[in-house]
Amino acid sequence: MVEIHVCVVGCCKENGGLNIRDEFLRLAKQMGFQEEVKIVEAECLGTCKYRPSVMVTDGEKKYYYGMMNTDVVKDILKYHLGLIKDTKTFENNLVKVETDK
């Protein structure tokens, strides 16, 4: 299960957080991955300077993306579902990666 946490409050909301959330929801449904993807509204991800922000968890890692826009949502979703391996489209949005270990 891939969990996508989208900040939808404060400065992230003002900078398009709700649009980012809606695009993840739309694409997951359109692509038929509603069962494999859980989209969660987050209050703060601690990456406010990169607003709007998204955190994706897929196993033991947490990937934080910032300066999000709807243009990169599809590639981030496809990458974390294992459908593409190339990260060039969204690598400028990757802020940090954390492991749970």
Rank of each mutant, 00 (worst) to 15 (best):
V2N: 06
V2S: 04
I4F: 04
I4L: 13
H5N: 12
V6R: 09
V9C: 07
V9S: 07
V9I: 10
C11N: 10
C11E: 12
C12A: 08
C12N: 05
K13R: 14
N15C: 06
N15H: 14
N15R: 15
G16K: 02
R21Y: 15
E23N: 15
E23R: 15
F24W: 13
L25V: 07
R26D: 09
R26M: 09
R26G: 00
L27V: 14
L27N: 05
L27W: 03
A28C: 11
A28Q: 12
A28W: 13
A28E: 14
K29M: 09
K29C: 06
M31I: 05
M31Q: 11
G32T: 08
F33I: 01
F33C: 10
Q34Y: 04
Q34I: 10
E35M: 04
V37K: 05
V37S: 12
A42E: 13
C44S: 10
G46I: 13
C48S: 13
C48F: 12
C48L: 09
Y50W: 15
R51P: 00
R51G: 00
R51L: 02
S53K: 03
S53F: 03
V54A: 04
V54I: 12
M55A: 11
M55V: 14
T57Q: 14
T57D: 03
T57K: 15
T57V: 13
G59N: 10
E60H: 09
E60M: 03
K62G: 01
Y65M: 06
M67R: 14
M67V: 07
M67C: 04
M68P: 10
D71V: 06
V72F: 05
V72M: 02
D75C: 03
I76L: 08
I76F: 06
I76G: 02
L77K: 01
L77S: 03
Y79T: 01
H80T: 01
L83Q: 10
I84F: 01
K85R: 09
K85Y: 09
D86V: 00
D86C: 01
T87H: 02
T87M: 14
T87Q: 14
T87D: 06
T87W: 02
K88G: 00
T89A: 13
F90V: 06
N92P: 11
N93V: 03
V95A: 00
V95Q: 04
V95P: 07
K96M: 15
V97M: 12
K101I: 09
